[in-house]
């Protein structure tokens, strides 16, 4: 729909948003896993290595779902707030 282009975001902006959120979804949970494991569970709390792995895996999965929820929220709002083209006559 070529004439529908007025109510959508520019291509580059959509690309930027999608890439940003995809990188967040991939990188942040992995970063959380290792940082939480080494700094908090192994460093501060001195847990057994197996327990610290399990707890940091749980933390990573929770963080993963939070970032996924952020993306869904963003995608849901993106098209809701895009203004409909006003008919002028």
């Amino acid at each position: 729909m070529i004439d529908g282009r007025s109510n959508e975001l520019p291509d580059f902006q959509v690309f930027q948003t999608v890439i940003k959120y995809c990188l967040i979804i991939i990188i942040v949970p992995i970063f959380c896993f290792f940082s939480v494991k080494s700094f908090i569970f192994d460093g501060l709390l001195n847990l057994h290595p197996m327990n610290s792995s399990v707890y940091s895996a749980v933390v990573a999965v929770i963080v993963l779902h939070v970032t996924l929820g952020l993306y869904i929220y963003k995608a849901y709002n993106e098209s809701e707030k895009s203004p409909k083209p006003v008919k002028k006559d």
Binding site: M1, G4, R5, N7, E8, L9, V14, T17, V18, C22, I25, I26, L64, L68, Y71, I72, K74, A75, Y76, E78, S79, S82
Partner: peptide, 18 residues
């Protein structure tokens, strides 16, 4: 037909990646 829906429709791909 509807290229403006790309961002919404990436969600199944992200969920499969999870």
């Amino acid at each position: 037909m509807r290229p403006e829906l790309i961002m919404k429709s990436i969600i199944p791909v992200v969920m499969a990646g999870i």
